[in-house]
Amino acid sequence: MARPLVLGWSHTAFGKQPDATLESLIVDAGRGALDDADVAPDQIDLVVVGQFNSGMHPLGFPSSLPLQIDDGLFGVPALRTENACASGSAAVHTGLAHLLAGRARKVLVIGAEKMTGIPASTVGSALLGADYDLAGAESSTGFAGLFAEVAQEYERRHGPGGDTLGAIAAKSHRLGAANPFAQLRKDLGEEFCSTTSEGNPMVAAPLRRTDCSPVSDGAAALVLGLEPTSTRHAPVRVAGWGSANDHLPRARRDPLAFAATELAWNRAMKDAGVTTGDLDLVELHDCFTIAELLMYEVLGLAPRGEGRRALADGVVLPGGALPVNPSGGLKSKGHPVGATGVSQHVSVAMQLTGTFPGVQIEGARMGAVHNMGGLAVANHVTILAADRS
């Protein structure tokens, strides 16, 4: 069977959207993707909704909400995937599996989350539900505290990182400022991101506010299929994909290894028959700046303990060997949990068709998506390529 295609896509703005509901986000993104793909609702064989929720929204059964898009979707099988912050990519991979199994020819995938307008304690408790040790417990710092421990361990093993995390944050803000979908659209500069201040307080040392992705509302959607349909742009080919899970208890994981992340990355690369050097960009899961730093090393852009070199040498910047998160990443674009993985796929698809509305990587022909749930526990990687068919 030929490799699946991403036929069309759509992306809402990310951020605080008081007038939006989970239903309106899903409907807007799903309808936009169908229109972009030139696919009629009655041509869809399966709908997959990626959403974490975990108590952030009272409706725990959203799989049929996409049927509100059009009556032509009545009777279409629909399901929801949940894999913590990797729920969106889990939805994409579920759709791909159905295509490759011959159970569907066109799949509508929607990732969505409504996280604002509820108490911060509710959001924090929901997110901590993705951690084996802290689920159900009280925590003043939540997942920021967990990734702060990772940053502390990184400094213990490899020495002080200087302003590396601040430089990563500044890169994300600079790129996000050009992305109309992004929540945080302001170039803050390295000095601000590297300095503790009233506007940039310490959240969990050494992570400041600018090191942490924001709480967001938003949705993204795409249509998967086997034959081109859109009159607006070329399709994007799914060249390969892979996933891997690590042990849930933190005691069974080296916090700096990201071992299952590396395994998922290698599986996707092998499936696509490419290497990291073949890529023109990557959208990776930078829920916190320390996660992006570690990913430089997982991807082999710098030796272990020397990830800062990938940034200092310009490797991960636009124009470098492998631009990282030209969308601004989770850090600036926002992180509506279930929408994130789908958003990453949409961002790369736009880059490969030259239609990204922010910082476009010129001549991009192949890109990767990396999306993880928990602290590198659930890991999904997809390799996308400009279609040459």
Score class of each variant (00 low, 15 high):
Val282Asn: 01
Val49Met: 08
Arg185Leu: 08
Glu155Asp: 14
Ala37Pro: 04
Arg232Ser: 14
Leu59Arg: 09
Ser89Arg: 01
Gly354Gln: 08
Leu330Glu: 07
Pro249Gln: 03
Phe356Asp: 15
Arg308Ile: 04
Glu227Trp: 04
Leu226Tyr: 09
Ala144Thr: 15
Val150Gly: 08
Ser332Gly: 04
Gly145Asp: 13
Thr261Ile: 00
Val377Phe: 13
Leu165Ala: 08
Ala182His: 07
Ala135Ile: 03
Asp131Ala: 02
Leu96Ala: 12
Asn245Ala: 06
Val346Asp: 10
Glu306Phe: 07
Val48Asn: 07
Ala167Trp: 14
Asp35Ile: 06
Gly8Pro: 00
Gly328Tyr: 09
Val381Phe: 11
Val39Ser: 06
Gly189Met: 04
Thr261Ser: 11
Ala378Phe: 15
Phe181Cys: 09
Val238Ile: 15
Ala291Trp: 02
Pro77Phe: 01
Thr355Ala: 14
Val298Lys: 07
Glu362Met: 00
Phe14Tyr: 14
Thr229Asn: 04
Glu191Phe: 06
Asp313Arg: 01
Glu113Pro: 03
Ala29Tyr: 08
Val6Ala: 08
Tyr296His: 13
Ser347Trp: 06
Ser63Val: 03
Pro249Lys: 00
Leu67Pro: 02
Ser140Cys: 02
Asp163Pro: 00
Pro62Ile: 11
Pro41Cys: 03
Lys331Met: 14
Asp35Tyr: 02
Val238Leu: 14
Ser172Phe: 05
Glu283Thr: 13
Val377Gly: 03
Asp45Thr: 09
Val6Asp: 12
Asn325Asp: 07
Ala257Ser: 12
Ala378Pro: 10
Glu82Arg: 04
Trp265Tyr: 09
Leu22Gly: 03
Thr196His: 15
Thr195Met: 06
Ser197Leu: 06
Leu79Trp: 07
Thr116Met: 05
Gln360Trp: 08
Leu46Tyr: 07
Tyr154His: 15
Ala91Pro: 05
Thr164Cys: 13
Gln183Asp: 13
Arg388Cys: 04
Val346Cys: 12
Leu281Lys: 04
Gly50Glu: 15
Leu25Met: 06
Ala291Ser: 11
Lys270Met: 10
His380Thr: 05
Gly95Thr: 10
Thr122Trp: 05
Val107Ile: 11
Val39Arg: 00
Gly117Cys: 00
Asp278Glu: 14
Ala272Leu: 01
Lys186Thr: 14
Pro18Trp: 03
Cys193Asn: 08
Asp271Met: 03
Ala86Ile: 13
Cys193Ser: 10
Pro18Ile: 09
Gly199Lys: 03
Asp131Met: 00
Ala13Tyr: 10
Asn325Cys: 02
Gly189Pro: 14
Gln68Asp: 15
Ser63Lys: 02
Gly30Val: 09
